[in-house]
Computed example of a mutant assay.
Amino acid sequence: MAIFALQNVRISGIASVVPKRVISNIEDCHPALQPERERLVRNIGILNRRIMRDWECFSDYALVAAEAMIKQLGWAKEDVDALIVVTQSPDYLLPSTAIILQDRLGLSSKTIAFDINLGCSGFPFGIHVIGSMIASGSIRKALLVIGDKSASMKSPLFSDAASVTALEFDQRAKPMYFDLNSDGSGFKAIYKPVGGHREPYATQHSIPVANNNGLLTWPDEVILDGPEIMNFSISTVPKVVMGLLEFANVKKEEIDYFIFHQANKMINETIRKKLDIPIEKVPSTLLNFGNTSSASLPLTITVEMAKELNNQSKKVLGCGFGVGLSWGTFIADIDNAICPPLIEF
């Protein structure tokens, strides 16, 4: 069981960026599909989504978020020791997006920069990777860049976003607690079969085929096994949440906010009810931002909690779960962090 405690690590700030372009799941679909979409919106809880322009990359938004975070904190760029990018939407297959961003941001060539290929669970994993480096004493200040370009006109679930979390060494910081897990036997629950070395992209993958409902799909799209994802989420998340609370010796009532990956309304409401958490302690951004993959936890913090975190201390439990299958949970005291308002780009 991968369960840990980290000392001397502080979350100093969180900045999030979304596209200005808003897509409505009801108004921006074919009129014949609107009744079905209305039922779908009631079930998944996603009305509006944000979508990047075709020529934009996730890193373009990450750059804006990182610049804003560095400026708000008053950090000198030469003092940023590490830049870790968690994404499934790299600029190129190689090199890593982190190294490209290191140069675009004007950071020192001594900055540690690399990518982590994770989706919905990426925020807890990324915080732990950077936190471990800081706790070891090897670095003092670092940026976690996270998010994806995953929105499309066809899928009613996904939305685009980028977020940057600043972490630094602080001997006064309260411990952070983590529980990180993986189960590759379920990788086909959420996967994109075409485009890697196992099945390289070829001409036939650009030809749409009709599914069982008569709708056209493309072979290179992400495949989602809805029932499997639902079963995995509602059976796994409550157990790991309670397990980490026990490990950290923290009572459920002591947590100010529970931040869950914004999967969909059915999944998240089932998890909340199984854990018997008051709805006011579980902020959600599903309605107007959809499923933003790895950025969903920091985006929700930015949208729903920024004002409180700017001048207060809050004990937060965050849990990301999904593609992999992979799931990660953390408990952290976020104390007077710098959280600028959501940036639209």
Score class of each variant (00 low, 15 high):
2 A>Q: 14
4 F>D: 14
5 A>F: 09
8 N>E: 13
9 V>M: 06
11 I>G: 00
13 G>Y: 03
25 N>M: 10
26 I>F: 03
26 I>L: 09
33 L>K: 13
34 Q>T: 12
35 P>H: 07
36 E>L: 14
37 R>D: 01
41 V>N: 06
41 V>I: 14
44 I>R: 12
44 I>H: 15
45 G>A: 11
49 R>N: 10
50 R>K: 08
53 R>I: 10
55 W>D: 15
64 V>N: 01
66 A>K: 02
68 A>P: 01
70 I>H: 02
72 Q>D: 14
72 Q>E: 15
74 G>I: 06
75 W>M: 01
77 K>G: 04
80 V>N: 01
92 Y>L: 13
97 T>R: 01
98 A>K: 01
99 I>Q: 10
103 D>C: 12
103 D>P: 11
103 D>T: 15
104 R>T: 04
105 L>K: 11
107 L>P: 07
110 K>T: 15
110 K>W: 09
111 T>N: 11
114 F>E: 12
116 I>V: 15
118 L>E: 02
118 L>F: 04
119 G>E: 11
120 C>W: 04
122 G>H: 02
125 F>M: 09
126 G>E: 14
127 I>E: 06
128 H>W: 04
128 H>D: 04
128 H>M: 05
129 V>D: 00
129 V>Q: 02
130 I>D: 01
133 M>I: 02
134 I>E: 03
141 K>D: 02
145 V>C: 05
145 V>R: 00
146 I>S: 01
151 A>W: 00
151 A>C: 08
151 A>V: 05
155 S>R: 11
156 P>S: 08
160 D>H: 04
161 A>D: 00
166 A>C: 08
174 K>M: 09
175 P>H: 11
181 N>Q: 13
183 D>V: 12
184 G>C: 02
185 S>E: 13
187 F>T: 11
195 G>R: 08
195 G>T: 13
195 G>D: 14
196 G>W: 07
197 H>I: 06
199 E>G: 00
201 Y>D: 12
208 P>F: 06
211 N>W: 07
228 E>I: 02
228 E>N: 02
230 M>S: 09
231 N>M: 09
232 F>G: 02
232 F>V: 10
233 S>L: 00
239 K>G: 06
245 L>K: 01
249 N>Y: 07
250 V>F: 07
251 K>V: 09
253 E>M: 12
255 I>Q: 12
256 D>R: 06
259 I>H: 00
261 H>G: 13
269 E>Y: 07
273 K>V: 07
274 K>V: 10
276 D>W: 05
277 I>S: 04
281 K>F: 04
281 K>R: 14
285 T>I: 07
285 T>F: 01
285 T>P: 04
292 T>N: 02
298 P>V: 13
298 P>M: 08
300 T>Y: 03
305 M>A: 07
306 A>L: 12
308 E>G: 09
312 Q>E: 15
315 K>S: 06
316 V>E: 12
317 L>S: 10
319 C>N: 05
320 G>H: 05
322 G>F: 00
326 S>I: 11
327 W>H: 11
331 I>P: 01
331 I>V: 15
342 L>P: 00
342 L>A: 08
343 I>D: 11
344 E>Q: 12
344 E>A: 09
345 F>Y: 12
